[in-house]
Design a protein around this nucleic acid. Sequence first.
DNA 1: TTAAAAAAATAAGATAGCTTAAGTATTTAC
DNA 2: GTAAATACTTAAGCTATCTTATTTTTTTAA
Lengths: 197, 197
Amino acid sequence: MQQGIQLILDNISKIVSLTKEEQDLFVSKLQYLEYKKKEFFLHEGQFSNELNFIIEGCVLVFYTDHTGFSHLIQFAIEDWWVGDIASSTHNIPTQLNIQAVEKTKVLRISKEDLEYLFEAIPKLERFFRILLQKRVANLQQRIISSLSKTATERFLEFRAQYGFLENRITQLQIASFLGVTPEFLSMIRRKLNSTNK
Amino acid sequence: MQQGIQLILDNISKIVSLTKEEQDLFVSKLQYLEYKKKEFFLHEGQFSNELNFIIEGCVLVFYTDHTGFSHLIQFAIEDWWVGDIASSTHNIPTQLNIQAVEKTKVLRISKEDLEYLFEAIPKLERFFRILLQKRVANLQQRIISSLSKTATERFLEFRAQYGFLENRITQLQIASFLGVTPEFLSMIRRKLNSTNK
DNA sequence: TTAAAAAAATAAGATAGCTTAAGTATTTAC
DNA sequence: GTAAATACTTAAGCTATCTTATTTTTTTAA
């Protein structure tokens, strides 16, 4: 079986169960792609009309502000979905960049195909509805943290939740996700080490 | 026709069109409720198993941290949907409070009825899928702002986007939404007034 | 394998935003 | 209609976080 197909079908089957025919129809709409390290899926200003499922690798979704600083909005590794929902929902050019930080293999589906599949397989629309609910819960939690926690607390939360990423992305990127400068994150880490060790 | 039914049907018909029978089935699951000013829909620790559509009034969704401070996560006025997606998706007690800040009239639908309706009327699942996409886009924008903007910029953004709320909720609540103290917001407003006027 | 580039650490000085406290204005509840 | 409660403003001093600059470490690419 083609690369990653089993992974994506398993991912879906955790939430809804498709018949063999439905699986085949779904799979027929997938496009397999590979990106090199540092290569971009999406650049600010483009229109985003796809949804990607990561089979292998790691990508970052970031926003670059008017002073040239990047802010990490989201990351995704194998078995995760990634795309720019804002751009594709509102049909506006994206303000985000999506970049591979490792060699990355994805399965991609276009917005048009996805809309067709939602008609053909309502269970698939359910799957994405539930995925979106989880994403809303996750984003809301991040807002709660940004409103109510210190940088140190947010770093500890990041570690608890995404510790597996700590050696896969740089401190610079973690700092950007937390909303602090890399210098300040470095200081936070030093303090935590001297206290706990 | 009962209070607000037309409003909710119009709200849905902006995204999907239901037949008369589907509308009737949907409407049959709605419960009409009124809340007094300051009354709570939902308290931290409860399980949230409903979705609310505001017909009239205004509610605030806030998180209270361990030091007793409140942080405004979301607000909703007439013609908006509100609920705790995190709690109802993951079946965990909510960490949020939902409180009416004015006399508020709502139409409520239970999670069970909603799930039944998604089976009976797939278009309704589409409606909520699209609503969730918009919510994700909105939350993501808020994260971008919190990562990349100063308090003054965030306040101007709030005014541009939610100016209609400026006289409906207090400065305290706006400050809490922006993630600053009310004292600091007061200072921001003074500076803006002295510069622009 | 090594030179160049990028990332991370350290530290000193600067600032956005917080705390505390007091005073004034507005709203609420009887 | 009035007293009490709540919201808002102002201001001084404080702290978390940023900026800038330098050094050290790690990664990248030829």
